[in-house]
């Protein structure tokens, strides 16, 4: 009964057309600027110029580094938390899971702002450190890579936990006890049983966290400022301060390529593992 294709296309077309015109075309044009350092001349000069500046290279490497760190850390914490959640009795599982998901519904501005309160010169951490006599003056915690790292971790950890919980729920019920009975230590259980069976969830979570960390704006802006630039905050600077659209487009292109490759690489790792 649903073989009338033209009817179907008519229903789907508005959405596709809308997104195409409003989104794909402008973004496409923007990205093409990355290849046109001189208007009309297609070349890779934009990229060459971009990477020839030490500041840009630093920002690029820093972004990559933080992305990987955040993804890795969230994977470790995520597995622990997910394993705990999955082993909770059903009554508390829902509420705990809800608490984990809750932060995702709240504006990143609010979530990041909290760290200012905590890490600021008169914030909790510094108050504690000075109070305990560990240091005479407040340590600068804000506007450091650590601050950005912590902020990003808090932002994206729930995504990893959600992915891993979902993957773990698909592990057949008695597989872990069976492995234990056969003599496996927890370490072995993790690497030989849990990890292989949840690798898809790990890939999804890893991709979400990595690309999220790469493309986050608010957290690096608030917690890093212009001292700790990431690619996105650099992009904003290029546009609003230097009017350098070519660099901005180059950065945009780099970000997209990085996200895309991360996805491919992680998928490849997942299937090779088996």
């Amino acid at each position: 009964m649903f073989l009338n294709r033209s009817e179907g296309l008519a229903l789907a077309l508005p959405a596709a057309l809308f997104t195409f015109l409003v989104f794909l075309v402008p973004v496409g044009i923007l990205l093409s600027v990355a290849f046109q350092a001189e208007p009309g001349v297609w070349s890779l000069r934009g990229y060459v110029d971009f990477f020839s500046q030490p500041l840009n290279r630093t920002v690029f490497l820093r972004t990559l580094k933080l992305g990987i760190l955040v993804a890795g850390t969230s994977a470790v914490i995520g597995y622990l938390a997910a394993f705990c959640i999955v082993n909770l009795p059903a009554t508390s599982r829902g509420s705990i899971f809800g608490l984990v998901v809750l932060p995702l519904m709240i504006s990143p501005v609010a979530r990041t702002y909290a760290w200012i309160v905590i890490l600021g010169r008169t914030g909790i951490v510094n108050d504690t450190i000075v109070g305990l006599g560990l240091s005479n003056t407040p340590i600068r915690l804000l506007f450091t890579e650590t601050a950005v790292f912590v902020g990003l971790l808090q932002l994206f950890l729930p995504l990893m936990i959600i992915s891993l919980v979902s993957a773990m729920e698909n592990i057949p019920k008695d597989v872990v006890p069976a492995a234990r009975v056969l003599g496996a230590s927890w370490f072995q259980v993790f690497f030989r049983v849990i990890l292989p069976l949840t690798k898809e969830g790990l890939v999804i979570g890893g991709t979400l966290v990595f690309t999220g960390a790469l493309t986050a704006y608010i957290t690096p802006a608030i917690l890093g400022g212009s001292k700790v630039l990431m690619l996105e905050t650099l992009l904003y600077q290029k546009v609003n301060v230097s009017n350098d659209f070519v660099s901005a487009s180059v950065i945009a292109m780099i970000l997209i390529v990085m996200c895309f490759s991360a996805n491919l690489v992680l998928k490849r790792i997942a299937s090779v593992r088996s």
Partner: peptide
Amino acid sequence: VPGIIVGLALLRY
């Protein structure tokens, strides 16, 4: 696509 790119692209084009 990262949001900031969307915003910029839409603004300019």
